[in-house]
């Protein structure tokens, strides 16, 4: 599904990614771990198409299509979803209206009619229930005054609504207490299928107790320095990152 070959990226002449190779197949969950400043969030942003970064070498393919020339919204229309570490507050636009706009823009781009209001409502209800989201919450302004946990839950709610092929969850566990973490993890697990894939970006092993990865990769100084199975995460938890440098 996702194929990253020798990816180099920089921002304002500062090299951040220095040759990443990653292959994620449909139905798989990959975790990318690493210390602060190793390039984890940059990798997530580059896959989603953030224009502040310049890809100087290498390629990102989604289902064999090169993403290089595609704008962030076009990547979203092709099924890429990025859950933000720090979701943005948008006053005056409710959660419901925002997600309706996002879904209908994607449908429009894919040659589909707008989702009928009734179906939209049904879907919103269903997904809100999945993530234990109160209906009142949906008519609040997007992320405005939300707690850290509410913001992250709302990110996963949007993921559930958009039904992406590739979901990249950037530090979704940060700022969550254990109950919120369980709800979020449970939501992600329920959304997993043989047709989609998840990339978890995390600093700690904690999240991986609830969303069990098929593969774990360690990122250090812009490169993947070690890959392994889920047991690698436990090893990192015990030994820290220093032994890999």
């Amino acid at each position: 599904m996702l194929e990253i070959n020798n990816l180099h990226a920089k921002i304002e002449d500062k090299d951040i990614l220095k040759g990443i190779n990653l292959n994620v197949k449909a139905g798989e969950v990959h975790a990318i771990m690493g210390p602060n400043g190793s390039g984890k969030s940059t990798l997530a942003s580059v896959i989603a198409g953030r224009e502040d970064y310049e890809v100087s070498e290498g390629s990102i393919l989604l289902n064999n299509e090169d993403l290089e020339e595609l704008a962030p919204e076009e990547r979203a229309h092709k099924g890429v979803f990025l859950s933000f570490q720090y979701p943005i507050e948008i006053p005056g636009v409710t959660v419901t209206n925002f997600i309706k706009t996002a879904i209908n823009e994607s449908r429009k781009a894919n040659g589909l009619d707008e989702l009928p209001a009734k179906e939209m409502l049904q879907k919103i209800r269903e997904k809100a229930e999945l993530l234990d989201i109160d209906r009142k919450f949906l008519s609040r302004s997007l992320n405005e005054g939300f707690s850290g946990g509410e913001k992250k839950r709302n990110e996963i709610f949007q993921m559930a609504m958009l039904e992406p092929k590739l979901s990249i969850l950037d530090e979704t566990d940060s700022g969550l207490d254990i109950d919120a973490l369980k709800v979020v993890a449970n939501g992600v697990n329920k959304l997993k299928s043989q047709d989609n894939a998840v990339v978890l970006i995390t600093h700690y092993q904690r999240l991986l107790e609830y969303i069990v990865p098929d593969y774990v990769h360690v990122l250090h100084d812009g490169k993947i320095v070690k890959s392994g199975g889920k047991e690698l995460a436990l090893e990192l938890e015990a030994k820290g990152y220093d032994w890999l440098k």
Binding site: E73, R75, A76, F81, F84, G92, V93, Q158
Partner: peptide, 21 residues
């Protein structure tokens, strides 16, 4: 702007929504 575009909202509409906000 990037947040909204990453959810599939095109640049022009994202701009408009942000200005409205």
């Amino acid at each position: 702007l990037f947040y909204m575009r990453s959810r599939g909202i095109p640049k022009k509409e994202a701009n408009g929504l942000l200005l409205y906000a």
